[in-house]
Design a protein around this nucleic acid. Structure first.
Lengths: 257, 257
DNA sequence: TAGTGGTCTAGACCACATA
DNA sequence: ATGTGGTCTAGACCACTAG
C-alpha cells in the first residue's frame, strides 16, 4: 500500500546546501515524490495520507519543509487539509470539488447539479480530431458516450464524450445507467483514473439536427459549444468532451483572478 | 506616501497568544493592513513595496510571519515577487497580467492581443440592468463606451462598456483614441482605479443588426456574448462590459483546476 | 487527553540581481 | 559587496477534532 519507505533517500547533503543540475528546492522534490505516491494509488481518493510529522520523519526533513511540500499539493487541489483531522486525498465525490467544475448555472437562482440521461455508449476508433485531442493516433480504440443533462427535468446540455478505451475497460451502458453522481467520481472509483485539471474552448454555433432533437430547439438556434479536454497525473489526456448548451435561461460562469 | 507608520499597533500580546472576537492569525491581520495601503495608493502599481525585513521591523513581527502575509498578497495577484529585486505592486501594464485576462484566442496559432477602435464614448444614466451590474441605483451617471477589437485587422469582438461616471471624470473619446494598450492600464494610471478580479457570464446569442454591421456577419449568426463585471478593492464594481464575439476562427479559452 | 494541522519565532544560509 | 527574496531548521505553542 504505502511504498514511500522504499523510495531511495534524497542525496545526502548539509542542511540548506541542496544543489541539482536544475535547482529545485527540497520541498519541491518531496512534493514530487508525494505526487508519485498519489499517481501510483498508494493512497486512495478520500483517505488520509500520513501526518506531517510522520512524513517529515520518513523523509528526514523538518516539519516546516514537509509542510511546504503538502501546501503545494493542497493549492493544486491534489489533497485537502482539515485541521484537527488530517490531510486527505481529494476526490470528485466531494460536493466542493463538483461545484468547481460545474460551469453551467441558471441565470436566476442558485447553481444546482444536473441529472444525466445516457443515450449511448459505444466502442469505436478515434477519428482525427478526437485522436488529436486525446493525444492518441487516429484509429486507436475509444469509447464514445452521449448524454443529456437535465436541470429541473429540462434538457439543457447534450454532451458527446470520448475516452481512451485502454483506460476504461468494462465501461458499459448498464454501468452508466446504474451510477448516479459525477462522471469523474465514477472514473475515479471504478477505473482508478483521477481527473486533475481540464482545458476548455468555447464557441457559439448554430444548432444542427442532432441538437435540435435532443434539446428541442429550432434548427440554427445559437448554442454554446464547450470543448473540454481533461487530464490526469502527468498531463495525460483522459477525456475529450464536447457539450452543446442551450443558454436561454442558463449561462457559463467564470471567475477571472 | 507611506503611511504604515501611522497605523496603530496591533494589540499587544505575547507571541502566539493572539485572540479576537473572530480568530484571525497575525499574518492575515497584517495582510489586511498591507491591503489597506494598496487601496489607499500608498504604493503605486509597478513600484516596489518595502522589503520583507523592513516591514517585519515596522510591524514588530518575525520575517517568517511577514513573509506569509506577503505570500497571500502574491497568490491573490495583488503583488508580484521578484527574487533579488523586491516585491512590486501588480500592474495591468505587465504582459503577464494582460495575458491572464485575454480569453479570446485564435483556434490556430499563438494568442496575441487585439487592437481597439473606439466607436463611442458618451455620458448618460444607468438603466436597470447596468445599474444592477454596477451596484448603482437606476439613473445614476455612467459612461458608455463602445469599441471594436480587431485581430490582424479583422473585427472579431464588439464591446459595450459601462463605467460609473463618478470614478472616471475626464474620460473622453480623444483620451481613448490616443491611448494604446490595455484599457485596465489606463484605468489604473489615469484614474487610480485598479481592476482586481472579474466575474463573467457567457451565452450564445443571435447577431442583431448592431453586431451585423460592426462584425460583418449575417443577421442571426451565432455569437458568443460575454458579460463581465470587474471589481476593485473591497469588491466594488468598476466596470460592466458586454462583448459580442465572432467565434468562427476564435474561441474563448478557460482552464479548470 | 491525544493527535492533527496551523501559527510564530529566531537564526543560518542559498539564489539572484545590481552596482 | 550588498540587498532582496527563497529555503530550511528546531522548537514552542495554539486551534480543532474525536475518543
Amino acid at each position: 500500500m504505502d511504498s514511500i519507505e522504499q523510495i531511495p533517500n534524497l542525496p545526502a547533503r548539509p542542511h540548506g546546501g541542496r544543489r541539482a543540475a536544475v535547482f529545485a528546492p527540497l520541498y519541491r522534490q518531496i512534493r514530487d515524490l508525494l505526487l508519485d505516491s498519489l499517481r501510483r494509488g498508494d493512497w486512495l481518493p478520500g483517505t488520509a495520507i500520513p501526518s506531517e510529522k510522520e512524513l517529515a520523519q520518513r523523509f528526514k526533513v523538518s516539519q516546516g519543509t514537509m509542510r511546504k511540500a503538502i501546501d503545494e499539493l493542497a493549492s493544486d487541489n491534489h489533497v485537502v487539509r482539515r485541521q484537527g483531522k488530517g490531510t486527505f486525498v481529494a476526490t470528485h465525490q466531494e460536493p466542493r470539488v463538483q461545484f468547481r467544475f460545474l460551469r453551467m448555472v441558471p441565470d436566476l437562482g442558485a447553481p444546482f447539479p444536473a441529472t444525466s440521461r445516457f443515450l449511448e455508449c459505444r466502442r469505436g476508433r478515434a477519428g482525427a480530431e478526437v485522436a488529436g485531442r486525446l493525444g492518441l493516433r487516429a484509429g486507436e480504440p475509444v469509447v464514445h458516450l452521449q448524454r443529456l443533462l437535465l436541470f429541473n427535468q429540462l434538457p439543457r446540455v447534450l454532451d458527446d464524450i470520448w475516452l481512451p478505451a485502454r483506460a476504461f475497460r468494462g465501461l458499459t451502458a448498464e454501468r452508466l445507467a446504474q451510477y448516479s453522481g459525477p462522471l469523474y467520481g465514477l472514473f475515479e472509483s471504478e477505473f482508478g483514473v483521477r481527473m486533475i485539471r481540464a482545458e476548455e474552448q468555447i464557441k457559439a454555433v448554430a444548432a444542427s439536427p442532432h441538437e435540435v432533437d435532443a434539446l428541442g430547439v429550432a434548427a440554427g438556434s445559437p448554442l454554446l459549444r464547450v470543448d473540454r479536454v481533461s487530464f490526469t497525473y502527468g498531463d495525460r489526456a483522459i477525456e475529450f468532451r464536447r457539450g452543446h448548451c442551450l443558454t436561454n435561461d442558463f449561462h457559463y460562469r467564470n471567475s477571472l483572478t
